[in-house]
């Protein structure tokens, strides 16, 4: 609306005691549960300068683990993004029998414990006893206890994140713009690329960031599927656990800090860019 005028700020009544009490409860809750523990990780990491981080990055096995985690996360995010956008279009724009079942199934990875996901994947793709694994292994593709299995487990746990971001935006968008593009001569691919994708791009970006954060941090499913072989299939989260169990506290904090900071950085960057782009 061109004539949208910001209404004069109305004078609100002063917040009462209940408002203050609620604010204190919420702040305390967040500080005790999130901010304080996370900041302690950072403080412990830098308790004696950059020493622990430097030491961590000097260990080639740890570096390998971080590389593996990042590679796996990127592959999983790419797969989940393409699949997620396609699946969202299918769910919102098309009618087919079993649609509600599919929609419910897509939420399964969020509700099922990752460790169950890991075990399930092993049952299917396990090299010796799996349902499908031996066949694949004969073809030269090892899934479980190898990077493909780690990717599969990561894809599984982060599966719904892009879809759950994109679906409501697509529903809100409606079909008028797409129909208008069709009537102006655009085919399906052109319509998607020129009209639909720009309209949902922020939902996709947000879904990607959430998936990336989730993929970097995945532990349970990966632990079951990867085999945790040092220097081969050990990922960054497994490094944290290993160091923690071996009483290498500074190393565990440093690895945990690096992991957390990547995820936090992603979310911060997006939340800085997003409102500016959408402001009109």
């Amino acid at each position: 609306m061109a004539d949208r005028v910001r209404p004069a700020r109305s004078r609100r009544p002063r917040p009462g005691p209940i408002t203050y009490a609620l604010r204190i409860v919420v702040s305390a809750y967040l500080i005790l549960l999130v901010a304080w523990p996370v900041s302690l990780v950072a403080r412990n990491t830098f308790a004696d300068g950059f020493g622990s981080v430097r030491e961590l990055l000097a260990d080639p096995d740890t570096v390998h683990a971080f590389r593996l985690t990042i590679t796996v996360a990127i592959i999983a995010v790419v797969i989940n993004t393409i699949f997620g956008v396609g699946m969202s279009l299918l769910l919102v724009r098309f009618e087919f029998p079993g649609k509600r079942l599919l929609s419910a199934l897509l939420d399964l990875p969020l509700s099922v414990s990752p460790i169950v996901a890991g075990l399930a994947l092993t049952l299917v793709y396990g090299g010796r006893t799996g349902w499908f694994g031996p066949t694949l292994e004969d073809l030269g593709l090892r899934v479980v206890f190898a990077p493909p299995g780690i990717v599969a487990a990561t894809v599984f746990v982060a599966l719904p994140l892009v879809i759950r971001e994109v679906v409501p935006v697509l529903e809100e968008l409606g079909t008028d713009q797409e129909l208008a593009a069709h009537s102006l001569g655009a085919g399906s691919v052109q319509t998607f690329r020129r009209i639909t994708l720009p309209a949902i791009r922020w939902a996709v970006v947000y879904g990607v960031v959430l998936s990336l954060a989730r993929s970097l941090g995945e532990f349970g499913a990966v632990k079951v599927v990867s085999g945790n072989v040092l220097g081969e299939t050990r990922t960054a989260t497994l490094v944290v656990e290993e160091k923690d169990l071996n009483f290498d506290k500074p190393g565990a904090y440093a690895a945990a800090f690096l992991l957390a900071s990547v995820s936090v950085a992603c979310i911060v960057v997006v939340s800085i860019i997003r409102p500016k782009e959408q402001a009109r």
Partner: peptide
């Protein structure tokens, strides 16, 4: 298909390409 009919269509709610 609509893109082959060479018709112009104007919607009640404009269907402007917002971006």
């Amino acid at each position: 298909r609509p893109q082959r009919r060479n018709v112009g269509f104007v919607f009640q709610h404009y269907a402007a390409f917002k971006h």
